[in-house]
Simulated assay, not measured.
Amino acid sequence: MSEIRSTPDTNRQAKLQAFDRLLTIMDELRENCPWDKKQTIESIRHLTIEETFELSDAILEGDLNEIKKELGDIMLHLAFYSRMASEQGAFDMADVLNGICEKLIIRHPHIYGDVVAEDEETVKANWEQIKLKEGNKSVLGGVPKSLPALIKAMRIQEKARGVGFDWDHKEQVWEKVEEELGEFKAEYHTAETIDKEKATAEFGDVLFSLINYARFIDINPEEALERTNKKFITRFQYLEQEAAKAGKKLSEMTLSEMDKYWNRSKGL
Results as ranks from 00 to 15, higher is better:
H110W: 11
A94K: 08
G164L: 08
W174L: 02
T122Y: 05
G72I: 02
W174K: 01
F91L: 10
L97F: 09
K103W: 06
Y81L: 05
H108L: 11
N98Y: 10
Q172L: 04
G113N: 09
A149S: 12
D95M: 03
H110N: 03
R155F: 13
E171G: 06
E187D: 12
N136M: 05
E134C: 14
E187V: 07
L104R: 14
N98W: 14
F203D: 07
S146K: 02
E178I: 12
H108W: 14
E192F: 08
K103P: 00
D205I: 06
V139C: 01
I111H: 08
I105L: 12
E102G: 11
G113C: 02
H77D: 03
I74K: 00
V123Y: 06
S146Q: 13
I156Q: 04
D114F: 08
D195S: 00
A199R: 06
Y112V: 11
E118Y: 08
S138N: 09
Q88M: 09
E118V: 13
A199M: 03
E134A: 13
G141W: 05
H189W: 12
D168M: 12
R155C: 06
N136A: 13
S146D: 10
E134D: 15
G204W: 01
S138D: 15
G141N: 01
L132Q: 07
E102K: 14
M84N: 15
I100E: 09
